[in-house]
Design a protein around this nucleic acid. Structure first.
Length: 571
RNA sequence: CCACCUGUGGUGAAAUGGAUAUCACAACGGUCUUCGGAACCGUUAUUCCAGGUUCGAGUCCUGGCGGGUGGACCA
């Protein structure tokens, strides 16, 4: 039983002592103002009206009956809030708990025994890994880690698009240059640049010259059917390089995928599914196979609309392939919960796919959650002139690194350290806001290294580690026991909230609440740091101050881990 | 035309229907013979409009206005 439940139970028994029966949920919240106490409940205001009693008086009566060891005081405030203050013992004890549980403080077992599957960062092979992918990866990685804190068995996969007419065009262009051309480039990123150029040029050539259609379609068909042709040969080279590059780039961002389901695989199983459920779910129309929502479907979800699943050439569209993907996900991973992340433009589209799929197999719909994130728009002339309109990830990181080196001043930073800080800055900018909103990513304004920012949190952590090292050198022993006459700080009042906050963040699939929390914690800590001498051999409370420091650092580290941001020992 | 998302200081964001709307950036003014100044302290400034529900609304409902996205064989 956690502290919230303890308090709820205490209020509940207070109510029954007063002869009040109340079946509803007793809302307990943290007041915005720390000075109002640690928890507050509005129960007296909720009940007052129904009972015909003055809420203030009712609150007084309830407050008097609330009594558990964890609580030190209960006060009533207008118009009927009951403010609850936790005991110093409870708060200090939590410092010990943090330090004991270490990296696992904040983990729970709410989803133990369940399988959760997360899909994100699905790339279009042959297209550059650009800023949108970075956003998707950042959100997806944080969601995945949030899932891991629940004790569930979590698998993280990606769904690369490996067959399409667009890829056919790129391969056509690649063949025009000649397969050997790729060997002229040394590094993988140069090779990727070349392949990206093939994609762009092939697409343009196709527009300029309609006569290419026959040969591009033939190439695409070769790829689909794995025919032993020069086209398939070229395709394999390109695909493998792209995949390798994708794995490298996402690793640089902190992701390691457990597996892939390729679009080509999903495509294969999709035709069968659609055929088996036509006309029961899908129907033929104008030579294509479509899904048309029924009236009751529309009543439940007004955004539904008709979409094509098999086009009139008999090929599966993206809709069908996504249905195939659902089948493969459930076959291979048997998830109790399947989450996938895309940008918000695909929201209405996927509602249709999901509704249709639910009629084929209800669990595909019921257990699937589609989380979306907004678009990352790129503003700022300085950056865009340097990087082009859709900047690729490695260029963005290189540009941000430059800024990091400037900020670092005289401190020496390795390439890896600079990368780590850059990624923190970018990820923080993405994750601080509620997923689903667009982000204007303007490096001049959105990228911050001060105040609310990734580097601020990293800096706070690094500095705390430095202090702990210094204390060890000076022979000060860290001691979690609360000194006599210790006045509880805001830090202790914020720290214990972490596990409940994480659990709620998972329930809402809202990583941004983690960002908000650790930022507030870091601010509380830095403010305390500014006014307190912590490492001090002459101060008998120094050991406890260091325990506080250690606990704060631990929680910041754990929170950053959820966000996919490294906590450095020095920077 | 229809549907979904969205509108909070000059800027970027936060706020399970709760108390004086929070945080940062920018601007202005301070702190340091110090445990790491990427820090700390202070000042200025905010819920698109009109109704409604409620003890209580940035949040919920209705209607406007503005922005974004989607709506049949592309992904």
């Amino acid at each position: 039983m956690n502290i919230v439940q303890t308090i709820q139970q205490s209020i509940s028994s207070a109510l029954s002592e007063l002869g009040i029966t109340y079946e509803g949920n007793i809302t307990i919240e943290h007041p915005r103002e720390l000075s109002h106490g640690d928890f507050a409940t509005n129960i007296a205001m909720i009940l007052g009206k129904g009972l015909g009693r003055n809420p203030r008086e009712l609150a007084d009566a309830i407050a008097e009956k609330i009594n558990t060891p964890e609580i030190t005081s209960v006060e009533v405030a207008d118009p009927g809030f009951i403010n609850i203050r936790l005991s110093d013992e409870f708060l200090s004890n939590e410092i010990k708990v943090v330090r004991e549980k270490g990296d696992f403080y904040g983990w729970n077992e709410s989803q133990k025994g369940k399988n959760i599957l997360v899909e994100h960062s699905s790339p279009n092979l042959f297209k550059p890994f650009h800023i949108g992918h970075m956003m998707n990866n950042t959100v997806g990685e944080a969601m995945t880690r949030l899932c891991r804190t629940t004790g569930a068995e979590v698998s993280m996969i990606s769904y690369p698009s490996d067959v399409s007419l667009g890829i056919g065009k790129a391969v056509w262009q690649f063949l025009e240059y000649g397969i050997k051309k790729i060997d002229e480039f040394e590094t993988i990123s140069e090779k990727m640049q070349f392949l990206g150029r093939c994609y762009a040029e092939g697409t343009q050539a196709f527009v300029d010259n309609r006569e290419l259609e026959t040969s591009v379609r033939a190439i695409t068909q070769d790829i689909y059917e794995h025919r032993d042709t020069p086209a398939y040969e070229a395709y394999k080279i390109g695909r493998d390089l792209n995949l390798e590059y994708f794995i490298q780039m996402t690793a640089r961002l902190g992701s390691a995928f457990d597996g892939f389901i390729f679009e080509s695989e999903a495509g294969k199983v999709s035709k069968e599914i659609i055929a088996e459920h036509t006309p029961s779910v899908y129907t033929e129309s104008n030579g294509a196979v479509i899904f048309e929502p029924t009236e009751s479907d529309l009543e439940e979800n007004k955004s539904l609309h008709t979409r094509v699943f098999i086009n009139k050439d008999g090929n599966p569209t993206y809709e069908a392939k996504d249905t195939g993907l659902l089948k493969l996900k459930f076959e291979r991973y048997n998830p109790d919960l399947s989450i996938f992340i895309t940008d918000s433009e695909q929201g209405p589209y996927f509602e249709v796919v999901k509704t249709a799929a639910g009629k084929v197999n209800p669990e595909w719909q019921d257990k699937t959650i589609h989380k979306t994130h907004g678009r990352m728009q790129f503003k700022g002339e300085k950056m865009s002139s340097r990087l082009g309109n859709t900047p690729i990830v490695s260029d963005i990181l290189d540009a941000v690194n430059e800024e990091v080196y400037i900020r670092a001043g005289e401190r020496e930073l390795s390439q890896d350290q600079a990368d780590m800080i850059s990624i923190a800055a970018v990820k923080y900018a993405v994750l601080r806001t509620q997923a689903g909103k667009n982000i204007n990513f303007n490096p001049d304004t959105s990228l911050s290294f001060e105040g609310d920012s990734g580097p601020y949190l990293q800096y706070t952590y690094a500095r705390s580690q430095s202090m702990l090292r210094k204390a060890t050198e000076q022979g000060i022993v860290i001691n979690s026991d609360r000194p006599d006459n210790w006045e509880t700080t805001d830090i202790e009042r914020v720290l214990y909230r972490y596990p409940m906050m994480v659990e709620q963040a998972f329930a809402d699939l809202a990583p941004h609440t983690v960002v908000t929390y650790i930022t507030e914690l870091a601010q509380a800590f830095n403010s305390w740091y500014g006014n307190t001498k912590i490492v001090d051999v002459d101060d008998p409370t120094s050991g406890y101050k260091l325990a506080l420091t250690d606990a704060v650092a631990q929680v910041i580290k754990n929170g950053l881990w959820v966000l996919g941001i490294d906590a450095p020992n020095e920077m």
